[in-house]
Nucleic acid binder design. Structure first.
Lengths: 345, 345
DNA sequence: CGCGCGAATGTTGACGTAAACATCGACGCG
DNA sequence: CGCGTCGATGTTTACGTCAACATTCGCGCG
């Protein structure tokens, strides 16, 4: 730090008053220039701009927020950034919010204990945000019995109608049907399912839609194997699945578990897709490079992010939420991990 | 929204004054209770607490920030959350910051054009943050010629001594040496390298350390293949690598590219590790489930996040930065993708 | 008994901004 | 020429919090 700086205490930046003094105008005029009001003389405006640059003036957002009663900031509650979907959605939300002139306040829930969740929401109440997007699997909230601070707009990204907040999410139902029907169309008698954790509404939706699709087509519904989204859990479930030589087609609830499944099958000497066809969900970048490249259901996270931000901002401004859930459609990406069944044994 | 609420305009939350009135004390006493000062009578404290709960009082962080001249908030500049490392580091930073009582303001750079970067930093100036952690590959900054707002504390997470800010990062040098020596120890004559993009200092460090290690052991330094961290770029480089039957061992600059490489080798009928040994970098969860499970260099992102937050907070409070870069050590995780060379052809 | 000290509580003001209102001068029109 | 209007600018004030200073009261001690 340079010598001119008084040590220890950081000096505050220049305020409107400083700029006003230098430009020889009143503070209010500076405010008008900063906010691009039209009723300022062109010459005056220039003078003020020059003074701002010279001093390196930056509006103080705390003062502005205090004055306006609005932070132009959105809180995003996440549990952890380990899952591909959460990460991607967060990215999309951040982008959308930025374009709409809002900044993002990331609020991590440190662990799933009730106190940690309650704690995160408590912090949120003190946070400078106008609204909140919740990216946590909703059952977790349920379990914690959290009450959100009142008077705060909320949007939940999950496939549950349980909450009294607007919901935005991928159309899990349609995606799961797409995957299941693809396998049936290839000629498989039925389709096994490796599902996500029971705490997740998204996982629940995918499972139910898979089941319904089988029923609609008059097929048998095999027992479900459960994972927790991780490749490791997929591997473990895969080891059990591989023992059953009835299995010719599996719909996996996400790509990471599908990877684990592929490994399990491979280790058992089962070929994909010759012995078993596999479909994932998400279409993470890596999926195209799994061995074999994975057929999967692509989610458009960008759209989910955009829609949640839009819904939240609308709610912030109107003060009331439109309840109709938004479902963003998916797309089936067919690669090499699916093929018609061939006799095995 | 319930009927009692006046429509359209959202009411502000209760303030200290409201609590004070209800509890029959002065605002200052409420402030003392809110901040856990000791000099408040136990009975009074209880009365104030009760009033707070009844009204659902939340301190207004904007007013607090304005008053105290401190936001207790950290800005994190990210380019995109596509790379595993960035995501993980962000997660760790968020966790560390939360534990230290700071909140996280996520500032995405929408694209790599100069204007977008400059723009992001401009926004940052108006953001309510005490300091900034930069998670962008530093060359990108370079190219944009960005000047950070003055009087803002900054920590850069990257392996460059170029900038005049404190640096925290994984010890790339040590990690790359670990990987390279592991392959040499197995008996490989030399080690090929599939590097990251030239814009990344981290990639640069890994490449140089790999090269130096080979030189130290008196080995030949083969030409470098470059990727951009993505599995796809790893696949493309892999296709070219596979043509050269001299190649028996490859050190890849990250796991995602390694996945692409594995696929390329597999498609060409080359077995890993029998024909070619592969080592990655990062140790993403999935790496253990690649086929074969990937030997890789594990980064402790948690530590990187913690250290950057600590460094930043220290800088915020002292007003001056200690320049000594922090290098967080790595660990070699040996799995199935590496083995001694066997004659091929 | 009175003095002083410290603990509990109250009062005032300032942080930086911007809405609301006030002022001032130029200009058009009857 | 006087009045009204409108555009440019200045003045006041409040947003919610908390440090600093003021006040009050009880208690110990000489």
């Amino acid at each position: 730090m340079s010598a001119e700086e008084s040590p220890g205490k950081r000096r505050r930046g220049p305020s409107m008053a400083d700029v006003a003094r230098l430009a020889g105008v009143s503070g209010q005029t500076v405010s008008r220039v900063a906010n691009d009001r039209h009723n300022v003389d062109a010459e005056t405006r220039e003078r003020v701009r020059a003074a701002m640059n010279q001093l390196g003036y930056r509006p103080n957002s705390a003062a502005r927020a205090l004055r306006n009663g609005e932070y132009r900031s959105i809180g995003v509650i996440v549990f952890e950034l380990h899952s591909f979907g959460t990460t991607r959605t967060l990215d999309a939300i951040a982008t959308a919010a930025t374009m709409r002139g809002y900044s993002i306040n990331l609020v991590p829930v440190l662990d799933v204990t009730q106190s940690a969740v309650t704690n995160a929401f408590g912090r949120l109440g003190e946070q400078a945000v106008d609204g909140v997007i919740i990216l946590i699997e909703a059952h977790t909230l349920d379990a914690a019995g959290v009450r959100l601070p009142e008077g705060l707009s909320v949007v939940v990204v999950d496939s549950s109608a349980h909450y009294d907040y607007p919901i935005v999410d991928t159309d899990q139902r349609q995606g799961a049907r797409l995957a299941t029907e693809h396998l049936l169309d290839l000629g498989h008698k039925t389709v096994w399912h490796l599902g996500g954790p029971p705490t997740s509404f998204a996982a629940d939706r995918r499972r139910r839609s898979w089941e319904q699709t089988l029923i609609d087509h008059g097929r048998e519904v095999p027992p479900v194997y459960d994972g927790d989204w991780s490749a490791t859990s997929g591997y473990e479930a895969g080891c059990r699945l591989a023992e059953d030589d009835q299995v010719t087609a599996v719909f996996v609830a996400n790509d990471q578990m599908a990877l684990g499944l592929l490994r399990a099958l491979y280790e058992r000497g089962l070929a994909v897709p010759d012995d078993v066809s596999v479909v994932g969900f998400d279409d993470m970048e890596e999926a195209a490079h799994f061995w074999p490249p994975l057929t999967t259901v692509r989610q458009t996270f960008t759209e989910v992010g955009r829609q949640s931000v839009d819904a939240l901002i609308a709610e912030i401004h109107s003060g009331e939420h439109h309840k109709a859930p938004v479902a963003v459609p998916t797309e089936l990406i067919i690669r090499k991990s699916t093929a018609p069944p061939s006799d095995r044994n």
